[in-house]
Design a binder for these strands. Structure first.
Lengths: 172, 172
DNA sequence: TAGCGCTCGTTGTGTATGCAACTACATTAG
DNA sequence: CTAATGTAGTTGCATACACAACGAGCGCTA
């Protein structure tokens, strides 16, 4: 099942110039956009991007609440990272920790009214930034294509812990 | 000069669904790929991605050396961040600090033979990862298109410190 | 129902990073 | 030439994050 693709894999095992350029541009774009969006949100609404991300994920969730692990996955953070982030946001009244009656190990993170209000104020600023700094440069078709392409990238990474080295060994 | 575009700007001030999806996918793809590439490089060559980045930038520079500020810009790090990174890499023998005879404030960071050798060992692993996890999913045309698109995004951000809020105010 | 392995979330610890203040040097204005 | 202003790099400090170890609770197995 693997060998049928060996030829193609061997031929494509190293990136060409276009790929490397795309990769470097991707990295720079990520840094530039996130630092800009983060700075704008911090300056205009006093809200870190990581907090905003938590608020959005909670607001979208049924009941405006998520388990710690789910939330950590949604905001792309480690468990311990999320524990501390929720600590801070809780101290600021944006979220609350509620025990899960169905699983006494678990904790729900619940969006508070204050958190919802904060999100309502911040969302226009952030969305405008996303459009101005990112969406502005993409046609609708391009945006969809980008999502599809990067979605494939993500799927290719999901689950499998196969390393590139293993991949090469497999092909050899 | 600004008003001629107001109508268009007003119409495009908030991102549509495709843009938001693309943005979220972009963020997730960045996290997933970099964590994978970093893990592979660390596991197989004991080299952090940030070190690799420094080695590449130096190797590409004339004389295999760059000034601190230039290098900081190239690897997308703050001045202080680079100071510490170079400290560590210097302690490990990958790079050396050399005073700039032409400007006694300045310091060149010079790639050492050991650093070059380390890069030579690591590059195949990293490039294979870039291809396997990223390039694999892009045709040549897509890769070029992605670079162009994200290049526009970067250009749109460069220099100008105009915030989205100012942008909206301008348009109103 | 007792035991074992797994999962959930937190905590201790180490590390990488940015910002602001600083020193040393360079450059420009007068 | 001197004073003022600007720039290069480092340092102190605060912060945000990951990893590993942990305690508590779940659920399967016998």
């Amino acid at each position: 099942m693997r060998n049928c693709l060996d030829y193609h894999r061997t031929m494509s095992s190293l990136p060409n110039t276009a790929t490397i350029t795309a990769w470097r541009t991707f990295l720079e774009a990520h840094v530039r956009i996130t630092e800009r969006l983060g700075a704008e949100l911090q300056l205009e609404r006093g809200l870190p991007l990581s907090w905003y991300d938590v608020l959005v994920q909670l607001q979208e969730a049924p009941g405006s609440r998520l388990r710690m692990t789910e939330l950590a996955g949604a905001v792309l953070l480690s468990k311990s990272g999320l524990t501390r982030l929720v600590d801070r946001m809780n101290a600021d009244g944006m979220v609350e920790r509620c025990p899960d009656p169905g699983d006494r190990r678990g904790t729900f993170v619940q969006l508070t009214p204050a958190g919802f209000e904060r999100l309502r104020e911040a969302a226009p600023v952030h969305l405008r930034g996303v459009q101005h700094h990112f969406g502005q440069h993409l046609s609708d078709v391009e945006a969809r294509a980008l999502a599809v392409t990067l979605g494939k990238v993500i799927s290719g990474l999901a689950g499998s812990h196969t390393t590139a080295a293993q991949f090469v060994t497999d092909s050899a």
